[in-house]
């Protein structure tokens, strides 16, 4: 087999299969906003440095690379505009606006599902209500613009974002295991009920990820944490 010579060790270190952002997160291109968030959390959990699930398969450097890919995939897929541009580029959807003549229609495929079929783990035996919901609420452009521009994330703004994404506090509590009381206190900026700062930062970051906001920006811009 001359066209397929002996493979030296380490030949496949470059993860050629992993360039597609949806593949990286094991998602179908039809995934909802919430699916993206959940897949991101799962992926980060699976490939974190001390993950039991990677034992004997991946080393430290591999994991770091994988986590970078996961972050990059999430950065694009969780951002409405970037995702749209990416989807069009990949041929997953038709360009929305006809007035944007630069986007060529030739790459567009109608059949989104056959790409979705390649998705590995998202289809499950265990029924996961959260991922079945497909809450892809129509984004409110005005709100998205305010999120982009925001450098402060007061509690009532967080609640507004959460509600516009159709995510309930109960959902967040169920998945993050943060008590509803703390989540309510975060949105109410209720100093009496908030946990100690070290915990608050962690909770806030998880909460932010659940509603599709940048965790570190929210932690930085949350008024009760500003000194």
């Amino acid at each position: 087999m001359t066209d397929f010579p002996d493979m030296p060790k380490g030949r496949f270190v470059v993860d050629v299969a992993q360039q597609d952002y949806y593949q990286v997160l094991r998602l179908s291109p039809a995934a909802s906003k919430l699916d993206v968030i959940n897949a991101y959390r799962r992926a980060k959990l699976a490939f974190r440095a001390d993950s039991l699930a990677v034992y004997s398969l991946y080393g430290k450097d591999d994991l770091e690379k994988i986590r970078k890919q996961i972050d990059q995939a999430y950065a694009v897929l969780s951002d409405h505009e970037q995702r749209q541009v990416y989807d069009v580029k990949r041929g997953f959807v038709a360009p929305r606006c006809d007035n944007d003549g630069k986007i060529e229609a030739e790459t567009v495929q109608d059949d989104v599902t056959d790409i979705g079929a390649a998705d590995g783990s998202a289809g499950d035996n265990v029924v996961d209500l959260r991922t079945k919901q497909h809450l892809r609420c129509d984004p409110d452009p005005e709100l998205e613009r305010r999120i982009k521009a925001a450098d402060a994330y007061p509690g009532d703004f967080l609640r507004e974002v959460r509600e516009s994404r159709g995510v309930s506090l109960r959902d967040i509590a169920a998945f993050t295991r943060i008590s509803i009381g703390y989540l309510q206190a975060i949105e109410a900026e209720d100093a009496a009920c908030l946990p100690a700062v070290a915990y608050l930062k962690g909770y806030l970051a998880q909460y932010a990820a659940e509603i599709g906001l940048e965790p570190h920006r929210v932690v930085q811009g949350y008024p009760p944490l500003a000194d």
């Binding site: 992993q18 959990l45 699976a46 490939f47 699930a53 990677v54 991946y58 590995g120 783990s121």
Partner: peptide, 23 residues
């Protein structure tokens, strides 16, 4: 309780084939 899903995700990436997670 998250280990099964993590293994599923890792398998999908490493083996490139789908493995179910029963619970």
């Amino acid at each position: 309780t998250e280990l099964g899903r993590s293994i599923q995700m890792v398998c999908s990436r490493y083996f490139g084939t789908k493995i179910g997670y029963l619970g």
